[in-house]
């Protein structure tokens, strides 16, 4: 069923491209696909990188930033859920920081960390942390106390009940948090690659627009959508394993 929506968009795109019939304003899906496939494994003339290479670059940054951000977020969230005082201290910080788009920090991160890989990976992590903290705290808080009591009266030690019931029961909620965090990671990476990078999909899109190669802009967007979809699909699969029957 999900395919129907995608097909509708492609058909709509096609029709619009036919009506406009200007390859710079709106290239057709076919023209885009041709460009995409061509440069997937061949370097674009103006630069020495293939689309596949740029995709790999963006993906590597996302995975690195996502990994450290998720790790810090999960640990911090778990500690906050267990220790009330910590929650009282960190909660306002999260509330204060949440409305700030991570992108606002790009210039600062560049000043601090230069234009290498570090500021990009730091930025992604900064976007991921608050989302993971909020969803981990919410998921752990939502575990009914009766689950723990049932486990304890079945002979579980406090430690066993914590690991096998509280943490386990919170898992699906944490994975949903990971999916949300993955979304914000893409926002961060594309933005930072447009401002301070010489490769990656965000850079490809910006550069293509400088040269008015619209097919390449669309190729970049399609690649981002495809990779994001695959990553989300993986997380959804993990969630289904963690929560059988939904």
């Amino acid at each position: 069923m999900g395919l129907v929506g995608v097909l509708c968009i492609i058909v709509g795109w096609w029709l619009a491209a036919l009506v406009i019939s200007d390859n710079v304003i709106l290239p057709s899906p076919v023209a885009t696909a041709r460009t995409l496939l061509h440069y997937l494994t061949r370097p674009y003339p103006a630069r020495g990188e293939t689309l596949l290479g740029d995709t790999a670059m963006s993906l590597a940054r996302i995975l690195a930033g996502f990994a450290w951000g998720a790790l810090v977020g999960v640990v911090l969230g778990a500690l906050m859920s267990a220790l009330r005082p910590l929650r009282l201290i960190v909660d306002p910080l999260i509330e204060l920081g949440r409305p700030l788009p991570p992108l606002a920090f790009i210039p600062l991160l560049i000043v601090w960390f230069g234009i290498g890989e570090l500021p990009k990976v730091v930025l992604i992590g900064l976007g991921v942390i608050p989302i993971m903290v909020v969803s981990v705290v919410a998921a752990l808080d939502a575990v009914p106390e009766e689950y723990i009591e049932a486990a304890r009266s079945l002979g579980a030690s406090p430690r066993y009940a914590l690991l096998h019931v509280r943490v386990r029961a919170a898992l699906p909620g944490v994975i949903t948090g990971l999916r949300l965090a993955m979304g914000i990671s893409w926002t961060s990476i594309v933005a930072v690659e447009m401002i301070a990078a010489t490769n990656g999909l965000g850079y490809v899109i910006l550069e293509a627009s400088n040269y008015l190669v619209t097919t390449l802009i669309f190729s970049g967007i399609v690649l981002i959508a495809a990779v994001a979809l695959i990553l989300d699909g993986l997380l959804r699969l993990v969630r289904r394993l963690a929560a059988p029957m939904g």
Binding site: E146, E149, A150, S153, L154, A169, A242, A243
Partner: peptide, 19 residues
């Protein structure tokens, strides 16, 4: 002094572990 498996507990909701 605390919970134990000598005393089984049943609640209004069955509280089976859904996973």
């Amino acid at each position: 002094r605390g919970p134990g498996s000598d005393r089984g507990m049943l609640f209004q909701q069955p509280m089976l572990f859904p996973w």
